[in-house]
């Protein structure tokens, strides 16, 4: 996943990069999903303007693109927070109390699943199994995995990211 939105320069640069992605896949069969993956990596999410540009570039109707974007959970129409928290709700984590972890996060951040805090620092998602079932319950913040969690640990972990100045 790309680091964040608009970190790598002006809108023009981003636009040029998007055109490059489209150009690279233009003649591939079934190009849409790989293009959406890379576009999301570039922008952090898939706003309508980006979908429109992909529609023009690949010659696929906007309605079809919107249909695909909303079908798959990996694609997001909303920007994500600076720190993306994702709590695993796979079976192994669930039987070990992942819902208590999620409840605690909602309480501490004051947001629901799928939302972003007002200051843009955190977004909260639930995901289905990241495959670290041996460490259940598990959550991911950006690319860091936190395993064998208990609800008491949540506050301390959040604090660590809150004060990060990067």
């Amino acid at each position: 996943m790309g680091d964040n939105m608009c970190c790598c320069g002006s809108a023009d640069v981003m636009d040029q990069k998007l055109q490059e992605i489209i150009e690279r896949y233009k003649d591939t069969n079934g190009a849409l999903i790989p293009v959406l993956h890379e576009a999301q990596e570039l922008y952090g999410y898939l706003p309508m303007e980006v979908q429109m540009k992909i529609s023009e570039g690949l010659g696929i109707t906007l309605s079809e693109i919107y249909g695909v974007v909303t079908f798959y959970t990996q694609f997001s129409l909303k920007p994500k927070g600076k720190n993306r928290i994702s709590v695993c709700l796979g079976t192994a984590c669930y039987v070990k109390g992942a819902n208590h972890i999620l409840d605690k996060l909602k309480e501490k951040l004051g947001i629901e699943v799928g939302d972003c805090t007002e200051d843009g620092k955190f977004s909260l998602d639930a995901c289905r199994c990241i495959g670290a079932c041996g460490l259940a319950p598990v959550m991911m913040i950006n690319d860091d995995v936190y395993g064998r969690l208990t609800p008491d640990e949540i506050e301390g972990i959040i604090e660590k990211y809150k004060n990060r100045q990067d």
Binding site: I33, H37, Y72, T73, Q74
Partner: peptide, 8 residues
């Protein structure tokens, strides 16, 4: 390789 996009 083709990547899935999170749909069971």
């Amino acid at each position: 390789i083709r990547l899935g996009a999170g749909a069971f």
